[in-house]
Amino acid sequence: MTATVKAATADALPQVRTDRLPLLILPVVMLLALPAIFDVPAWLTLTLAGLAMGMMIFLMASGLTLVFGLMDVLNFGHGAFISVGAFVGASVMLPLAAWMQADSFALNMAVLLPGILAAMLVSGALGYGFERIVIAPVYGQHLKQILITMGGLIVAEQAIHVVWGPDQIPLPRPTSLRGAFIIGDVAIEKYRLLAVAVGLLVFLAMMLVLNRTKLGLLIRAGVENREMVESLGYRIKRLFVGVFVAGSALAGLGGVMWALYQETVTASMGMQVMVLVFIVIIIGGLGSVGGCFIGALLVGLTANYVGFLAPKLALGSNILLMVLILLWRPQGLYPVARR
């Protein structure tokens, strides 16, 4: 993302070209969908659903794209953190089902928040182990990386079966997050609203860290040139492990949110969502958090609009979206500058 220009004395300052074009796609897609759907309340509902789905995908994808940008590591096993997060969350919440079903926001949250926290902790810890044991030995070797992390995914999925059994687990949403606010003809689902809020919050927090803290500067500098960051005296490996763990924890958060959205938890859910996650980070430009955010929202919106207009084409539409964007920008919306 490009910085804003504040210089008042603009006598011969070079022009900073801010690349805002990709930002325009979102409103354009929304506006194009309006006449196609031809029903304002339905359009509003679908738009909210699309944004909610996009935000959840963003949670799961952001860590992956940052890890790739920083270390050129693509973890195909990222889906395991999503599934594990969902299962851990369910394990914490289900024994307290009575509180979940109670008609009290406070009681609901008293279950939901520890569930989310546990999911993030376990996914993060798993991410740490995964990085140390599985990924660290194969730095810089893409082929092995893909194979090993895929193998890790298989093992993780099977291990979930060993721990939690072979069946899917139903996970009903807490009472206060069920239903919708009705405003006129428009139904705004509460859970979707929450998903949008959480996604936005995480995105803003990430942007704040990346742009306003030294840690964020280091990450952005590392994405551009990790050798130079090391030459300035910073241990980039440590930074990388930190980002990897944070990304895994976010995947765990995304997993819980996704599970509550679907109201079931399955071992293969991580792998299923990963398809969308990959599409999102390709669209966004591998390594770019901003691109990932726009890409995720685009994918969410497209899936919902097309799902309404031509249900059978929903997933195909995302592939089509990816193809169109890559035809326009072969490296994704915001290609990351590299040496």
């Binding site: 990963m274 398809v275 990959f278 980070i281 995302n318 592939i319 990816m322």
Partner: peptide
């Protein structure tokens, strides 16, 4: 790049 190919084939195949 090769890693792109892996991701895109995965997405296309599952679609």
């Amino acid at each position: 790049r090769a890693i792109f190919f892996a991701m895109i084939t995965l997405a296309v195949a599952s679609a």
